[in-house]
């Protein structure tokens, strides 16, 4: 993994607020992260933790109102995606940044053939002729492992199975050779054996095409298998980020620790009772001024209710976590830093 390379995507202080009748919901609160070329960044969190909203905000895919991007910069290709004009943004969407949505049934248009939907970005972004777009579409379907691609181009989405539809979605996202691919829970709606097929496919495509990928999921198992780096989100904030091995071997934030313990395994010893995280994630009606995990945290102390911890580096380079306990941890064992 090229650690020193310039990030291809650099997000700073992103803040997204939904205005609803019941008041404001602060879905994303000052999120910073970056993505390096060729890297796979896994984003983990429960529903409502803001992981999808963060990625949708990057490309301004959220309808406004109710969504409102209050703050932040999204630097990509030398420009701020939050500031550029809609026309310029359209050149980025689907061309330089591809997006795969969770549910392949609702994100494909049921009244157009798959061939038409594949050709659409090719003709719009790359200015291909019909024949060129057709050839490229066949190539793309072959790439994602759909048998008999020439004939399948004429089929409608409902004629494909769930796994095949997700392959079509991936093909569309890859159509213009994007530098960044954002995959929002691409395997959640699929069965495990089909999920295994899709994961193998993505690993293979990464080797062939080398694009950077942001993979959103709540399945820690999937992340462990494919990610280079992991970002854990809770209540619209990044609570921990770091290299995949570090996150799983030595999680620093109490939420990450609890999350890893609460999932039972199919292999290895079986626990008599499942570890639970008591309570529920909060609904953020305002900008958090305290640690949002404190009500469910077994280590919470008075400072957690007064201040919101910032992401601070821990032991290993690139590993950061937002928790006050880390200060004490790093002062206690200074030898282990860079150890």
């Amino acid at each position: 993994m090229p650690d020193t390379a310039m990030p291809i995507l650099d997000v700073n202080g992103l803040k997204t607020v939904f205005r609803t009748r019941g008041g404001e919901v602060h879905a994303v609160n000052s999120v910073d992260f970056h993505l390096r070329p060729g890297e796979l960044l896994g984003v983990v969190g429960e529903s409502g933790s803001g992981k999808s909203v963060t990625m949708m905000s990057l490309l301004r895919l959220l309808p406004s109102p109710p969504a409102e991007m209050r703050n932040g910069t999204v630097m990509f290709d030398g420009q701020d995606l939050l500031k550029i004009s809609p026309e310029e943004l359209r050149k980025v969407r689907g061309s330089k940044i591809g997006f795969i949505f969770q549910d392949p049934m609702t994100s494909l248009n049921p009244v157009y053939t798959v061939g038409f939907q594949l050709a659409e970005p090719l003709r719009a972004h790359l200015g291909m002729s019909k024949a060129q777009a057709r050839d490229r579409s066949v190539e793309l379907l072959k790439l994602v492992g759909i048998p008999d691609p020439e004939r399948r181009l004429k089929d409608f989405p409902h004629q494909f199975s769930g796994g095949m539809r997700q392959r079509v979605m991936i093909a569309i996202a890859l159509a213009c050779d994007p530098q960044v691919l954002i995959a929002d829970e691409p395997t959640t709606a699929l069965d495990v054996t089909i999920q295994a097929q899709i994961i193998e496919l993505v690993k293979d495509l990464r080797r062939k095409l080398g694009m950077a990928i942001i993979w959103i999921t709540h399945d820690l198992g999937v992340i462990a298998g494919i990610a280079d780096r992991v970002m854990v989100m809770y209540a619209g904030q990044v609570v921990e980020e770091g290299p995949v091995n570090e996150i799983f071997r030595d999680p620093q934030h109490p939420y990450t620790q609890a999350l890893l313990k609460t999932v039972p395994a199919v292999r290895g010893p079986r626990a008599e009772r499942l570890q639970v995280i008591e309570g529920q994630p909060p609904i953020m009606h305002e900008t958090p001024d305290a640690c949002s995990f404190r009500n469910r945290c077994q280590y919470a102390f008075d400072r957690c209710a007064r201040e919101n911890p910032a992401l601070e580096p821990v032991h290993v380079p690139g590993h950061r976590a937002a928790c006050f306990l880390l200060d004490t941890a790093s002062t206690k064992e200074p030898e282990t830093v860079h150890g």
């Binding site: 295994a196 298998g225 799983f248 890893l260 395994a265």
Partner: peptide, 22 residues
């Protein structure tokens, strides 16, 4: 195949896991 397809939250063993892909 079904059991081997389940990913495990452990990067070390995930790297060596060879799922039977149906």
């Amino acid at each position: 195949a079904l059991l081997s397809a389940v990913p495990e939250p452990d990067p070390e063993s995930e790297r060596n896991r060879k799922p039977i892909v149906l």
